[in-house]
Design a protein around this nucleic acid. Structure first.
Length: 497
RNA sequence: GGCGCAUUCGUCUAGUGGUCUAGGACGCUGGCCUCUCACGCCGGUAACACGGGUUCGACUCCCGUAUGCGCUACCA
C-alpha cells in the first residue's frame, strides 16, 4: 500500500486542520490516552491547525469531575495546550436528542421499544444455534405504525433509537491502515439513543466531530471497528466524514493491553517517579512512530517539525520502562545545572531532612547538582544520592566494610591521610588530589586501595562522585571528623569479629 | 463463532522487489577509560511467525494457517 505513505495533504486541507482529543473521564489520563493526545497535538502543530479537547462523559455513572481535572492536569504537565473551550458531552444532551429525532423524522432511524431482556433472550437463543443475532433481521419495531408508536409513547413505554442501516458495504480510507471495507451484514441497526435520552458513544462522537468541524479523527486502534458505524451516521445525516487515522495501542510487557497490573499507567505516576515531561513526550511519540532515520532524541520543536502520520506504525507497541529511564537520563544530562536543580527541587522538598536552609545555599547545592547530573536516571534519586553531604554517615554499608576495612592497616592509612589533609591550607579539589597521590606513591599502594576505604569513611557507602570534589564540598573539618569516626568504628568492628 | 486489524532481534524500530551475509536504539554482555558509580568510547548477543504461490529474484506483492488484539453492548 505504498500510496498511503505518499499521501500528501493538499493546501486546502492543511489550512483547515482541526483535531481533538476526546477522553472519557472514567480514569486518570493514562499512557495510551496521553499518546493519542500527543499525536493529535503534534498533527495540529505541524499543520498549523487547532487541537481541541472534548470530555466524553455520557456515561454518567462512570464519569467523574475529579477525573476530568486529573486528565487536564496530565495534559498540562505534558504541555499540550488546547485551543478553544473544552466541550463536555454531558452539556450537549439536547443537541444529540435533536439530531437523533431528526434522523427518525427523515426515516434514517427508528424508535425501538424492545426491552433489554427480550433482546438478550433472542441473542441467547441464536447463540444456541451458533448464530449471530441481528436486530436488523427482524426489525420488529420498524414495522410499527405511527399510531402504534404514539400509543406506546403515551403509555410511557421506554424506547431506544436505532439507526436503520442501508444494504451496502461501508468503505473508507484510514490514513494509517489504508482502505477498509466492511460488509453491511456484519453491522446491525445499532442504538444511537438510550431510553434515558443519553446518546450512545457513536452518536455523540459523530455529532460532536461534525459540530466542532473536526477534519481528522486521530484515535486509538480500538475504534477502527467502530468507524463503519460512524461513517454510516455521517451518511445518514448527509455530512461529509472527516479523515480517520487509527493509531496502534500500547501494551504492557506481557503484550496485553496496559492496565494497573503493569505498574504505572497513569501519566501522573511518571511525574511522581521522577520523569521529565519532555522525556515522556519524546518517548511516547517514539512508541509507534518513527521519523524514518535513526534519531531517538527529539526536542518538542523537532517533533512538531518531523511528525507525520505516515510514520505511524500499524502494530501495537510494548511499553518498556527501561528505555524510558535511559531517555530520562539523556534529558537530565542535557539540562544545565540550574535547570536540573529547579526541576529537582520539588522532589527535594518532599524529604523532611532537606530544609529551607539547605536549599538556600544555592551555590553549594548547585555544585552537588553538577556532580549528580550524569548519574541520575530519575529525579527521585536526587535526594537519596546526596544525604552524606549534609550529615555524617550513621552506618556503613556492610558489604563495603567487609571488602575495604578488613584489617588494621586501613586505620594507619586513614590516619595518615587525615594528618596530611589537616596540613592543607587551601582545601580544594586539586590540592587534595596531590596529597592523596603522594600518599599512595609513598605507601606503594594502588590508588583504589586508598580511595575506597576513604569513600566508605566519608559517605558510608561504596558509590559516589569523585572523592576530591566530594571532600572539597564537605570541607576539611567534616572530612577529618568523619575519618576519625571511621577509625574508631573499624577498630571496634575488628575486635568484635 | 463471525468480521476487522496486526505480525522484523527480549523491547522500540529502519526497511516501499535486487543496495539485507537485515541497519539503529534500549536491555543484556566483553573491553577501554577510571578512586567507586555513572557518563563516554570500542566490540558482542539476538529478528524477517509458518506454509504455499507470483517473480529471474521476496522481509518487501498475493493466498492460506497460526498467534495476538479489537468490534460483535442501552461502555467509551
Amino acid at each position: 500500500m505504498s500510496h498511503i505513505k505518499e499521501s500528501v495533504m493538499s493546501a486546502a486541507e492543511i489550512k483547515s486542520v482541526r483535531v481533538r482529543f476526546a477522553p472519557s473521564p472514567t480514569g486518570f489520563l493514562h499512557i495510551g490516552g496521553a499518546r493519542t493526545a500527543i499525536f493529535n497535538w503534534l498533527f495540529a502543530q505541524k499543520h498549523n491547525g487547532k487541537f481541541l479537547l472534548r470530555i466524553e462523559d455520557t456515561d454518567a455513572e462512570r464519569s467523574g469531575q475529579d477525573m476530568v481535572e486529573a486528565i487536564i492536569e496530565g495534559l498540562r504537565w505534558l504541555n499540550l495546550d488546547w485551543d478553544e473551550e473544552i466541550v463536555s458531552q454531558s452539556r450537549r444532551l439536547e443537541v444529540y436528542k435533536k439530531h437523533a429525532h431528526a434522523l427518525v423524522q427523515s426515516g434514517k432511524a427508528y424508535k425501538c421499544f424492545c426491552s433489554k431482556e427480550e433482546l438478550a433472550a433472542k441473542r441467547d437463543e441464536a447463540a444456541k444455534k451458533k448464530q449471530d443475532y441481528r436486530y436488523r433481521n427482524d426489525r420488529k419495531c420498524l414495522s410499527l405504525t405511527t399510531g402504534e408508536v404514539e400509543e406506546l409513547e403515551v403509555r410511557n413505554q421506554p424506547y431506544v433509537i436505532r439507526l436503520k442501516l442501508p444494504e451496502q458495504p461501508v468503505q473508507f480510507t484510514d490514513m494509517i491502515h489504508g482502505n477498509i471495507t466492511v460488509h453491511h451484514k456484519q453491522l446491525d441497526d445499532f442504538i444511537i439513543m438510550r431510553p434515558d435520552g443519553y446518546p450512545t458513544y457513536h452518536l455523540a462522537v459523530v455529532v460532536d466531530d461534525y459540530d466542532m468541524q473536526i477534519s481528522h479523527v486521530i484515535r486509538g486502534d480500538d475504534h477502527l471497528s467502530n468507524t463503519p458505524k460512524h461513517i454510516l451516521l455521517y451518511k445518514a445525516f448527509g455530512w461529509q466524514p472527516p479523515q480517520f487515522a487509527h493509531v496502534p495501542l500500547i501494551l504492557g510487557m506481557d503484550k496485553h493491553r496496559l492496565s494497573k497490573r503493569h505498574g504505572a499507567t497513569a501519566i501522573g505516576e511518571y511525574e511522581t517517579s521522577g520523569y521529565l515531561a519532555e522525556t515522556v513526550l519524546n518517548f511516547l511519540t517514539l512508541l509507534g512512530w518513527s521519523s524514518g532515520d535513526d534519531r531517538e532524541i527529539f526536542s518538542r520543536a523537532e517533533l512538531v517539525k518531523e511528525f507525520d502520520i505516515s510514520g505511524v506504525a500499524k502494530k501495537s507497541a510494548v511499553f518498556d520502562e527501561k528505555k524510558l529511564e535511559w531517555m530520562n537520563g539523556q534529558y537530565i544530562m542535557a539540562l544545565t545545572d540550574q535547570e536540573l536543580l529547579e526541576k529537582a527541587t520539588p522532589y527535594l522538598k518532599k524529604q523532611d531532612w532537606i530544609t529551607e536552609e539547605i536549599l538556600a545555599d544555592q551555590k553549594f547545592v548547585l555544585k552537588i547538582t553538577a556532580m549528580l547530573k550524569q548519574r541520575l536516571k530519575r529525579l527521585t534519586e536526587f535526594p537519596e544520592m546526596i544525604a552524606y553531604f549534609f550529615s555524617a554517615p550513621e552506618r556503613y554499608e556492610e558489604k563495603a566494610v567487609k571488602k575495604f576495612w578488613k584489617d588494621e592497616s586501613v586505620i594507619d592509612i586513614l590516619q595518615k591521610i587525615s594528618s596530611q589533609l589537616a596540613a592543607i591550607k587551601d582545601f580544594e579539589n586539586t590540592s587534595i588530589e596531590a596529597v592523596l597521590r603522594s600518599i599512595t606513591d609513598e605507601l606503594e599502594l594502588g590508588f583504589g586501595k586508598v580511595m575506597n576505604p576513604l569513600r566508605l569513611a566519608l559517605t558510608g557507602g561504596s558509590v559516589s562522585p569523585s572523592m576530591f570534589e566530594v571532600m572539597e564540598l564537605l570541607g576539611k573539618q567534616n572530612v577529618l571528623e568523619r575519618i576519625e569516626t571511621a577509625c574508631v568504628y573499624i577498630r571496634k568492628n575488628l575486635v568484635e569479629n
